[in-house]
Amino acid sequence: MAEFGELVLVLGDLHIPHRAAAIPEKFNCMLVPNKMQHVLCTGNLVSHEQLEELKALAPNVHVVRGDMDEACPSSLPASAPFPDTKVVTIGELRLGLCHGHQVLPWGEAAALDGLARELDVDVLITGHTHKQQVSERGGALVPEPGQHLGSILEPGGGGGGGGERRCPASFCWQCRGPRSCATCTRRRSRVPWT
């Protein structure tokens, strides 16, 4: 694994049990403990159980709060509620993590760009829209060597985005360019991962 650097799994909007009974099997079988070093979750786990499962996957699990997490009072760890945003440094990359419902209009690149500036991050990962996309300026998002972005699933569909049920995105261990339902917005063009 070392030659590929640290693997990062990015996922969000699980909405279990709100929108789905479970993580799709195809995707679930890839969620093997100790494969990833980081799990970045854009929120809407909705239940404790899902959080526990994520915690079992990797040593570093970062979760931010989704809109449904807010709405369901008992679905969150009351002692340490998830923050709205979080900045995670992996290697030399500053990753910003935010669910995205707080950024209006939802899913819009210009608005998300603003958040990226606020958080002072290289990459901003957001969810909420339930769409797989990479920001238009990102092009092929190839992180610098040693950084990998896993890809994302979209278990539920519906909601803020098109509402379609989608098959989960394929994993991009080799980083040929992640397709994801989280929106990855690249901000600095000077970084070598363009």
Partner: peptide, 14 residues
């Protein structure tokens, strides 16, 4: 109780 109810909720999607 909460865990059980969440479990029950998933039934809807089955």
């Amino acid at each position: 109780l909460e865990e059980e109810q969440l479990l029950l909720g998933r039934l809807v999607h089955v």
